[in-house]
Write a protein that binds this DNA or RNA. Structure first.
Length: 848
RNA sequence: GCGGAAGUGGCGGAAUUGGCAGACGCGCUAGCCUCAGGAGCUAGUUCCCGCAAGGGAGUGAAGGUUCGAGUCCUUUCUUCCGCACCA
């Protein structure tokens, strides 16, 4: 064999895999399936090693599962729509289609050069009309079911560029291009009713037993279920709709000394109109609304408010209390109005102190009345009610139940559940996305594009100005359309969809990516889904992973799939840092995989990235670590080179048939099988890929030590049955044992270093390649040691070691331990109080 | 503020069920090999005392449970991450 030149191997095997379509699969219900998926990529141009880590993790899993006999679906695609390409078009004039296609081609080449085993024939890009057609189809189905609806909502607006800005385009409260201070504007926009599934999305987190607890916690917090009550406060003196508040602490309602409205509350405009000085009123409200959104929501901003002059009646006390507008009350949560209980809520407390509003204590720890003047912060703990009429003396929890029941009886309120999760606004005033397939007709109103006219193709735009409202609104031949119902002139929707829509179901499309009649054949999805192993960045813990769970339920309720959860197991991989920072082009600390590939080959890079730390952990990139992995592969290469001609041959038996193995040979077999166990468990069950690599390194070290012994150790072991091969003479037993070990090693290396493993496997005489190889089988009987070294502790310190048969009885072990000279040095003249024998592990002696 | 995760040699990290702390790798040291070594092989490498044998200490800190704790419990410190005026 020649020297280890991985670059040649990379090329050779990548070509063979491609020409043999090695990783393409078809559904086969007679075989167990495994759907292995990494989050698809935004085609930014170049993948750096941080991105690549994720693909390698998935590839190790996919390649292992193939060798274990699973029918493995391992596809890849491109999250190809998105703002960066459009921003680039505005700056450089290059059309998003052009830059995106170019970036995809480059990144695909990078992944292929890494030898990631994707079923490339299933590749998809979300900017393909064949893909986004089904976004549109699904949107219409959701519209029909009331899951997609339209309402007014605010967006960021740059008055200078006269354009809507995405949140990412707002930098420090200003426009990303001109710095002009951003305003909010109300526009009619489309929403998905994800809140219809809020309870289910929350409750089913309990079934996601193979997801990181961290992600589940984040999702639960994001959904933010809270139980409470809605209570109506009637306007004093004026007939009309009451102000409804949401509270989780109805037990404190006797302490509600005022009511607060969000500036966005619908009643605020009416109150302004009716006020003595409407102009000043409106000006104050407007001032709150212009406050930087982030600052207003951050909790650090100064609490501000003003009295509307209107009073409402507390339905429990009958007392009239003032209504204020406050900058910190959120319009989009609850009812946009809250009852303020300053004694028992810190925000209300601060507000009351600032504006001299009354504070009344109605819950105390012991049920004894207490004076509000002594408070220096709100007392928000549960306790016993005081000064609360008929409810005084009740504990908070019981009071809540009774008060909610009474409110319901009297028609002044009811118990309710409130979610922090809001409906998902999907309208984007952008070009590079899926056109929303809706038509506005003066006669027929909102009309979906008929299915047979899908897709609504994104028109090609020549110039990107970054000015004006939705770019599509500036394309008359796109906008103007005949109404599908009445045929009269109508207008198309000119907004495009949030790209999270694209990524919420792509994993279904991979099951049947070329279907032109449906988003996918339910039978294909029935076989392949759910995704068994999904890996990607933790930054998607909330949005993408909740939206996908939502879509799975939408598909389920459309009768297209029969499961609820799309991802059985989730792995969130850590980032790769360079010089302590996340890699980014702007920081100039990007490690380019291609230059590493040229120097060390794909396998060294793959192995290093897997070896350096467990997949979930952040890692710091080091070139010396990569060199270490290269050295290991070269060491394996030389090992196989040394042995391959000796052990490659007909008539080599299984080591099971060898009865008279030497101690060294038995020890090597033991190490081999123990390694098989460790590597298998580490990858398949623990996803602890770093220790799987360590285990293989240990085996290689053992094989080196063993090889020294047999090659230079002389003829003492030799018998008449020696095998004569290629000038090397070895005991037949040695050949059997080494062959078993080396062949296991090469196959275990295959998921990590597939190119090298393929070459070595061929060198060992296996012409069919690793595609035909199976994962080595662990044999507990072989791995079991026949002798153990048992440490003996005296008062917690190791004072001796006993080499004993593995099957030794506890009593005998105890006797040996007590008789050991090293132990006796520490027990002499003392009384043995206790002896604990931990079977097969240790003996612990207590003396005094 | 709330929630989550984590603190182990010079460094990245191991320790699977409460049972020999530091596997494996990087780095470093020495020897061998070599014209040479930024290649390879072998040995060593937690800290302190000691020529050595050996002894002592040791997993952020302080307590506790236990024959035995990196692992379990309590308190505490630090770091990272997420959420953050959600009533």
């Amino acid at each position: 064999m020649a020297d280890y030149t991985p670059q040649d191997l990379d090329r050779k095997w990548q070509q063979r895999w491609a020409s043999s379509r090695a990783f393409e699969v078809v559904a086969d219900p007679s075989r167990p399936k495994f759907y292995c998926l990494e989050m698809f990529a935004y085609p930014s141009g170049h993948a750096h090693v941080g991105h690549v880590r994720n693909y390698i993790i998935g590839d190790v899993m996919a390649r292992l599962k193939r060798m274990l006999g699973y029918n493995v679906l391992h596809p890849f695609g491109w999250d190809a729509f998105g703002l960066p390409a459009e921003n680039a078009a505005i700056k450089s004039g290059i059309h998003p289609e052009t830059s995106t296609r170019g970036n995809i081609a480059h990144m695909k080449g990078q992944l292929q050069r890494l030898g990631i085993s994707y079923a490339w024939e299933r590749e998809l890009a979300t900017c393909d009309p064949e893909y986004y057609k089904w976004n549109q189809w699904l949107f219409i189905r959701m519209f029909e079911k009331g899951l997609a609806y339209r309402r007014r909502s605010s967006v960021n607006w740059c008055p200078s560029c006269r354009t809507v800005l995405a949140n990412e385009q707002v930098v420090d409260g200003g426009c990303w291009r001109c710095g002009t201070s951003v305003e909010t504007r109300d526009l009619e926009q489309w929403f998905f009713r994800i809140t219809a599934y809020a309870d289910e999305l929350l409750e089913s987190t309990a079934t996601l037993t193979k997801w990181p607890e961290k992600v589940l916690t984040m999702q639960r917090n994001w959904i933010g279920r809270s139980e409470g009550a809605r209570v109506k406060f009637l306007l004093e003196g004026t007939p009309g709709a009451p102000i409804e508040v949401f509270t989780t602490r109805i037990d404190t309602i006797y302490g509600a000394t005022f009511v607060l409205l969000a500036p966005e509350h619908p009643l605020v405009a009416d109150l302004a109109a009716a006020s003595p000085d409407p102009a000043s009123f409106r000006q104050q409200v407007q001032a709150f609304r212009l406050q930087d959104r982030a600052a207003r929501m951050s909790g650090e901003a100064e609490k501000q408010g003003f009295d509307t002059g209107v009073r409402v009646v507390n339905p429990f006390t009958g007392e009239a209390v003032p209504v204020w507008v406050a900058n910190f009350v959120l319009g989009e949560y609850g009812t946009g109005a809250v009852m303020a209980v300053p004694a028992h809520d810190q925000r209300d407390f601060e507000f009351a102190r600032k504006f001299g509003l009354p504070i009344r204590v109605v819950v105390t720890p012991d049920g004894q009345p207490s004076d509000a003047a002594s408070l220096d912060e709100a007392a928000d703990a549960y306790g016993t009610l005081v000064g609360s009429g008929e409810y005084s003396g009740l504990p908070s929890a019981e009071a809540q139940t009774r008060m909610i029941a009474d409110a319901r009886t009297k028609g002044i309120g009811e118990g309710t559940v409130q979610f922090r999760l809001k409906d998902w606004g999907i309208s984007r005033q952008r070009y590079w996305g899926t056109p929303i397939p809706m038509i506005y007709c003066d006669t027929d109103g909102i009309v979906p594009v008929p299915d047979d006219q899908l897709p609504v193709v994104l028109p090609t735009i020549a110039e990107f100005t970054g000015r004006g409202d939705s770019p599509l609104a500036q394309v008359p031949e796109f906008v103007n359309v005949a109404c599908p119902t009445c045929g009269r002139p109508a207008r198309r929707e000119t907004d495009t969809m949030d790209t999270f829509v694209d990524s919420s179901w792509y994993f279904y499309r991979f099951a049947d990516p070329r279907n032109d009649r449906m988003p996918f054949d339910p039978a294909a999805v029935q076989y392949w889904l759910p995704v068994d192993f999904y890996s990607g960045g933790v930054e998607h813990a909330i949005l993408h992973l909740i939206y996908s769970r939502f879509f799975a339920r939408v598909f389920r309720d459309l009768g297209l799939v029969d499961h609820g959860e799309p991802f059985t197991q989730l792995l969130t991989q850590g980032m790769v840092l360079k010089d302590g920072a996340v890699m980014s082009k702007s920081k100039g600390n990007v490690v380019d995989p291609d230059s590493m590939l040229q120097k060390y080959g794909a396998d060294a890079l793959r192995l290093y990235v897997m070896f350096v730390a467990p997949p979930e952990k952040e890692v710091e990139w080091t070139d010396t670590g990569l060199e270490g992995s290269f050295r290991f592969l070269a060491r394996v290469w030389r090992l196989v080179d040394h042995w391959c001609e000796t052990i490659d041959g007909e008539g080599i038996d299984s080591p099971d048939l060898c009865v008279n193995l030497t101690a060294a040979e038995r020890s090597l077999r033991r190490k081999t099988h123990d390694t098989i166990r460790r590597v298998t468990v580490d990858i398949e069950q623990r996803q602890q890929l770093n220790t799987a690599v360590s285990a293989m390194m240990e085996l290689v070290n053992e094989l080196y030590a063993f090889s020294e012994g047999t090659i230079t150790g002389g003829p003492s072991h030799r018998t008449d049955e020696d095998v004569e091969h290629a000038g090397q003479t070895e005991r037949r037993e040695t050949v059997c044992v080494v062959r078993e070990s080396v062949e296991a090693l090469v196959r275990m290396l295959a998921p990590f270093a597939p190119h090298t493993a393929e070459e070595l496997w061929a060198a060992l005489g296996h012409e069919a390649g690793l595609a035909a190889a199976t994962w080595p089988t662990f044999r507990a009987d072989v791995a079991r040691a026949d002798e153990l070294v048992i440490p003996v502790q005296v008062n917690g310190k190791v004072r001796g070691r006993l080499t004993v048969p593995a099957e030794i009885a506890d009593a005998e072990l105890e006797a040996l331990a007590l008789a050991d000279t090293g132990v006796q040095a520490h027990t002499a003249g003392k009384t043995v109080r206790k002896v604990v024998v931990a079977k097969g592990r240790l003996v612990s002696i207590v003396v005094a």
